[in-house]
Amino acid sequence: MSLTNQLILITGAGGGLGSTAALALAEQGAQLILLDKSIPKLEKIYDAIVQSGGPVPVMYPFDLAGANEMQYQEMADAIEQRYGSLQGLLHSAVEFSAYTPLAIHKTQDWGHTLNVNLNAAFILTRVLLPLMQKSQQASIVFTSDSNARQAQAYNGAYGVSKIALEGFAKILAEELEAGQKIRVNTLVPGPIDSPLRKKAYPAEDKTQLPAMSSLAPIYRYLFDSASLGMTGQIIDANTFTL
């Protein structure tokens, strides 16, 4: 139980990768704050963690795109009042509608995608940094996409958000490196049998893809003390070895 007494917040905790990470981290004893706008999805992963014998998590229904800065700060204040500090932050929430040519990309879809995938990650990270600074060591993990980051045609706002997110993570890692407390890395899951993959490639034979559970060891590593000193890295799940 190497993550015992570690408090980790997961966005998109009800999604495919978010719930996979939540189960993996809870099995190692982590205390989790599960963030998602869907209460039924939160309840599902909550029940799964409890049934697995992990520490009882906290459900925090929250709309990343719809919340204002005050609501983000209220969340951070509530965490501080209850726990005092935070040891981990996993950005797993994602917005993807469809592959769209930029020439016909709707402004509303563009703004919503950037709000969830990029702006929310910035605001949430900023308001939680003081709590992570109170920890002896802490880990921030962003989630990117191997296809979107290549700036291929039709990736639209989703692709732009992932490219920008990787840049944001790199800048943040360099700014925090001198403090030697908070490490910042980006996970690229690669092609995997996830709900997002099904939505993006509905005709693909998913039986040929790795299961989401194959990412569990990487999630555990990134939040475990074994990854201390590793920061500013892009972790490709297809090539990374523990």
Rank of each mutant, 00 (worst) to 15 (best):
K37G: 01
I192S: 05
Y219H: 08
V188K: 02
E43K: 00
K106D: 13
G229L: 07
Y158C: 11
L90T: 00
D47C: 02
L131S: 13
I218T: 13
Y158A: 06
D145K: 05
A211M: 14
A237M: 12
G111H: 09
D205L: 13
N147A: 15
Q31F: 01
Q28H: 07
L209N: 09
E175A: 12
A98K: 15
E177W: 02
A200E: 11
L176N: 02
T241D: 10
I182Y: 05
Q150G: 08
L89V: 12
I10P: 01
G190D: 12
N115E: 14
K37L: 01
I79Q: 00
T100I: 03
S225M: 09
I182C: 05
K206E: 09
N119Y: 06
A76V: 09
K198L: 10
I140F: 14
F96K: 01
A138T: 13
V141P: 05
Q133I: 10
Q6L: 09
D77A: 12
L124H: 07
E80Q: 13
S97Y: 05
A178H: 08
R149S: 13
I10K: 01
S144V: 12
R183W: 03
L215R: 08
N5Q: 14
V160N: 11
N155R: 03
I235A: 10
Q208A: 15
A178F: 13
S97I: 12
L165Y: 10
N119R: 14
A103F: 03
I79P: 00
L242E: 11
L86H: 05
E174D: 15
A200K: 05
M59T: 01
A226F: 06
P130A: 10
L215F: 08
L25G: 00
E74D: 08
G167K: 12
I171T: 15
M132C: 12
K206Q: 03
L102I: 15
S227F: 04
L114D: 03
R183G: 09
G16Q: 08
Y154H: 14
V160K: 04
L90V: 05
Y219T: 06
S194I: 06
I234R: 07
A151N: 15
D205K: 10
E74R: 04
L242N: 09
A26E: 00
A103T: 14
K162S: 07
P189I: 08
M132K: 03
Y99I: 14
L222N: 01
A30E: 05
P57N: 04
L131C: 11
Q6C: 08
G190T: 04
K134H: 11
R197D: 03
M212I: 09
F122L: 14
I218K: 03
P195T: 14
E95W: 04
F223K: 07
I104C: 02
T20L: 10
H91L: 10
M70D: 11
I45E: 01
L3E: 07
A13G: 03
H105N: 02
N119L: 11
I171V: 15
G54P: 07
S213L: 04
V56Y: 00
L23I: 09
Q180I: 11
A169M: 12
S2L: 11
H112N: 14
Q150L: 15
K134Q: 15
T107M: 06
L131D: 06
L129R: 04
S92D: 03
A98F: 06
N147C: 11
S52N: 12
I39E: 06
P101R: 10
L165I: 07
N155F: 06
Q87M: 04
V56H: 05
Y154R: 14
